[in-house]
């Protein structure tokens, strides 16, 4: 009976972890510049791997290997954060400017629309 409960918890945690890790992968491919890619990679990396490892801790039960898994989880959390900050700082000091939405283009389009409306009213 208890095994059914722990196994279902493991299935849920592992599925969620794999889902978030996949979101990290898709984000790295789709997003436009290094800083927004870091958003996807850092957050999803930490949360996805943490959830998957916690699910395996539940599957393992109380034992020595579970302790080892917990230590690996803590290591993943801290190292993920430190890697994110280090890469972001190196990118900024290396002179990479963040990608910007083309706001001037948007403002120009808005103005044209207003002008057309004005002409029609006239």
């Amino acid at each position: 009976m208890i095994e059914v409960v722990t196994n279902s918890i493991t299935v849920v945690f592992l599925s969620l972890g794999v889902f978030f890790l996949s979101i990290g992968v898709i984000g790295i491919i789709r997003l436009p510049d290094i800083y927004s890619r870091l958003h996807a990679s850092t957050k999803c990396d930490i949360f996805g791997a943490g959830l998957a490892l916690l699910g395996l801790v539940v599957y393992e039960g109380v034992s020595f290997n579970a302790l080892k898994l917990l230590v690996i989880t803590g290591l993943m959390l801290t190292s993920g954060l430190v890697i994110g900050h280090a890469v972001a700082r190196a990118a900024r000091r290396g002179g990479l400017t963040p990608w910007q939405e083309d706001r001037e283009e948007l403002i120009r389009l808005e103005k044209e629309k207003l002008l057309e409306k004005f002409m029609e009213e006239k």
Binding site: G17, L21, G24, V25, I28, I34, R37, L38, S41, D45, G48, A49, A52, L53, L56, L69, I72, M76, G80, I83, V87, A90, A91, G94, L96
Partner: peptide, 23 residues
């Protein structure tokens, strides 16, 4: 395009392979 993208891609590959190793 730059070195840093390669770095974070390698980091993500490392995380995925780590979970696979534990499985």
């Amino acid at each position: 395009p730059t070195l840093f993208e390669r770095i974070i891609a390698v980091n993500l590959i490392g995380t995925n392979v780590l979970v696979v190793l534990i499985l």
